[in-house]
Design a protein around this nucleic acid. Structure first.
Lengths: 205, 205
DNA sequence: GTCTATAAAGCGATAGAC
DNA sequence: GTCTATCGCTTTATAGAC
């Protein structure tokens, strides 16, 4: 009993540390985030921090594993009764909304900056994020083609193209902090525009 | 005479310092690059460095101005006798080649990492780079539409779409260091694929 | 396990000799 | 203008009291 309680407390504390570390990493970047400031914001001490993570790199790797090694189901399959245009607009809107999230933008900046020195981190993120997203959309498109709504040879390539249509105008711009946050309407319009272009190219005539 | 020589020498040395600083910034990132290592690689001393740039931020701003405040003519207008497909493939290939350059990828990582704390730097880069590129392509498309080769309402939006088709599959992946360098053929194929999709959507039937 | 205190190293920036 | 030497500060990481 004692043992179980201690285990739970330890795990809970570890999670708490990771929550705080995440905040600091996203705000300051890896190089600028200091173990001291993480400990301070945690309310604890550096000694405790080093008790849970043996180095700053170790802490960062734990962050990457927790934040990049999952991808939930925003790419739901076509809903019953949806037209192809409706499906694509729904997926496009969901994708763009997610990709322009404050967390996603900051995380992307953080990961990409570190990808130079530790390529493994970039690869972990890419495989679990963008690559998996494109594959999900590829499956969706394959299904739509099988149902006779689209004419395409390479669903994965088409998925990359669709996601490119959806995000190209705003993703880089937001990443660079060059434009303000998008409105719901802008996102909806962009997704609709992408769906229209995609269907003109791939829709059954 | 004396004065002119000194001017030239000083400017030349300044350029040399910026060359070295660029190397270190691109390799280490801004936070990890130290004035000491820049001075060491330069073969000079920190005293000299601070004689030319009053702070590390000052040096970085000079780098940004030099590397981001120009954009040469890779988006040439359609060559005489080119078909729309040939124009688009040529532009797409040139754009993709340029965007996947080692320098461009490293510079993008560097700038984007700093865009969090100094949005001005991100904006400068975006306006002189991606935004200007999209506008150039927009003009190209407007010309092609005026010549009766395309049917489109919003050339700038279409330009963003075309560039999205061209780069979405590989830019993020290369940025994350998740895939190896592309071959000439891959670049050519991707540009051809983008041109085909774009023309299916916007080409005159 | 958690704290305080501190070690060892590196940083940006400066002073002063030449 | 360029160098050496160093200041003052912050960093990661550790040692030892409790």
């Amino acid at each position: 009993m004692e043992l179980t309680n201690t285990r739970l407390d330890r795990d809970a504390r570890r999670e708490l540390i990771l929550d705080v570390a995440q905040e600091v990493f996203l705000e300051e970047g890896f190089a600028n985030a200091s173990m001291s400031s993480i400990a301070a914001r945690l309310g604890g001490s550096k000694g405790t921090l080093y008790n849970y993570f043996k180095s700053k790199d170790d802490l960062f790797n734990a962050y990457v594993e927790r934040r990049c090694l999952w991808q939930d189901e925003i790419f739901a399959f076509p809903l019953p009764g949806e037209t192809p245009d409706q499906s694509l607009r729904r997926i496009g809107r969901a994708y763009l909304t997610r990709v322009l999230t404050d967390f996603n933008l900051r995380n992307f900046r953080l990961i990409v900056a570190e990808a130079e020195r530790s390529p493994e981190i970039g690869r972990i993120f890419y495989d679990a994020g963008p690559r998996m997203g494109a594959e999900r959309v590829g499956e969706l498109l394959r299904g739509m083609a099988a149902a006779g709504h689209l004419e395409l040879e390479d669903p994965l390539e088409a998925a990359h193209q669709f996601l490119g249509l959806v995000q190209n105008r705003y993703f880089k711009a937001r990443l660079c902090n060059a434009i303000p946050e998008l409105t719901e309407k802008q996102i909806e319009d962009e997704a609709a525009f992408a769906a229209r272009t995609f269907l003109r190219a791939y829709g059954r005539r």
